Amino acid sequence: IINNLKLIREKKKISQSELAALLEVSRQTINGIEKNKYNPSLQLALKIAYYLNTPLEDIFQW
């Protein structure tokens, strides 16, 4: 999986903590996703895309 979450999140000036709060997950979860240590569920990936107002395929590429 190619993961552009960190790049997109930083472009939008959103911290890991802010995104985690919006998604109701821990900051460690966001960190793990960004470091490719954790693959989000489809539901979480869709929520990330929604809150970042970015197409899912721009954030994650399988």
Rank of each mutant, 00 (worst) to 15 (best):
I1T: 12
I1P: 09
I1M: 13
I1Y: 14
I1G: 10
I1W: 15
I2L: 11
I2R: 13
I2N: 10
I2D: 08
I2M: 13
N3T: 05
N3C: 08
N4S: 06
N4Q: 07
N4E: 05
N4M: 05
N4C: 09
N4Y: 07
L5Y: 00
L5H: 01
L5I: 08
K6T: 08
K6P: 04
K6H: 07
K6C: 06
L7A: 14
L7S: 14
L7F: 13
I8L: 06
I8H: 08
I8K: 03
R9G: 01
R9V: 03
R9D: 03
E10L: 11
E10A: 06
E10F: 06
K11H: 12
K11Y: 09
K12H: 07
K12M: 10
K12S: 08
K12A: 13
K13S: 10
K13C: 09
K13I: 05
K13M: 10
K13F: 07
K13D: 11
I14L: 13
I14Y: 08
I14G: 01
S15Y: 05
S15K: 10
S15Q: 06
S15V: 05
Q16M: 09
Q16D: 04
Q16F: 02
Q16V: 13
Q16K: 07
S17V: 12
S17G: 13
S17Q: 14
S17M: 12
S17W: 12
S17L: 13
E18Y: 09
E18L: 07
E18D: 11
E18M: 10
E18F: 07
E18N: 09
E18S: 09
L19N: 00
L19G: 01
L19A: 02
L19R: 00
A20D: 02
A20Q: 03
A20R: 01
A21K: 14
A21D: 14
A21I: 08
A21Y: 08
A21Q: 12
A21H: 11
A21F: 11
L22M: 13
L22G: 11
L22I: 09
L22H: 12
L22F: 14
L22W: 13
L23S: 07
E24C: 14
E24S: 12
E24W: 07
E24H: 15
E24M: 11
V25L: 05
V25A: 03
V25Q: 02
S26R: 06
S26N: 13
S26D: 14
S26I: 03
S26A: 06
S26C: 06
R27Y: 10
R27C: 11
R27T: 15
R27E: 15
R27F: 08
R27N: 10
Q28T: 12
Q28I: 07
Q28D: 15
Q28V: 13
Q28Y: 10
T29I: 14
T29V: 15
T29E: 08
T29M: 13
I30A: 00
I30M: 06
N31Q: 13
N31K: 15
N31L: 11
G32T: 10
G32M: 14
I33C: 02
I33V: 05
I33D: 01
E34S: 04
E34V: 05
K35M: 14
K35T: 15
K35D: 14
K35H: 14
N36C: 12
N36T: 05
N36G: 15
N36D: 07
K37T: 15
K37P: 03
K37A: 10
K37R: 13
K37W: 15
K37I: 11
Y38W: 09
Y38L: 14
Y38T: 10
Y38M: 10
Y38P: 02
N39Q: 15
N39E: 12
N39T: 14
N39D: 08
P40V: 11
P40T: 06
P40A: 06
P40Y: 05
S41Y: 04
S41C: 06
L42Q: 08
L42C: 15
L42W: 10
Q43L: 11
Q43M: 11
Q43Y: 12
L44C: 06
L44W: 03
L44S: 02
A45T: 05
A45H: 02
L46K: 12
L46E: 13
K47S: 08
K47T: 04
K47C: 08
K47D: 06
K47G: 06
I48S: 00
I48T: 02
I48N: 00
I48E: 00
I48L: 07
I48F: 05
A49F: 03
A49P: 01
Y50H: 12
Y50G: 07
Y50K: 11
Y51K: 06
L52R: 00
L52W: 00
L52G: 00
L52S: 01
N53P: 03
N53R: 09
N53L: 04
N53G: 11
N53Q: 13
N53S: 11
T54W: 05
T54N: 03
T54D: 02
P55Q: 06
P55S: 08
P55A: 07
P55F: 04
P55R: 08
P55W: 04
L56E: 04
L56P: 06
L56W: 05
L56G: 02
E57N: 12
E57I: 07
E57F: 07
D58S: 09
D58N: 08
I59H: 02
I59Q: 01
F60C: 05
F60G: 01
F60M: 03
F60E: 01
F60W: 10
Q61W: 11
Q61K: 11
Q61C: 09
W62K: 09
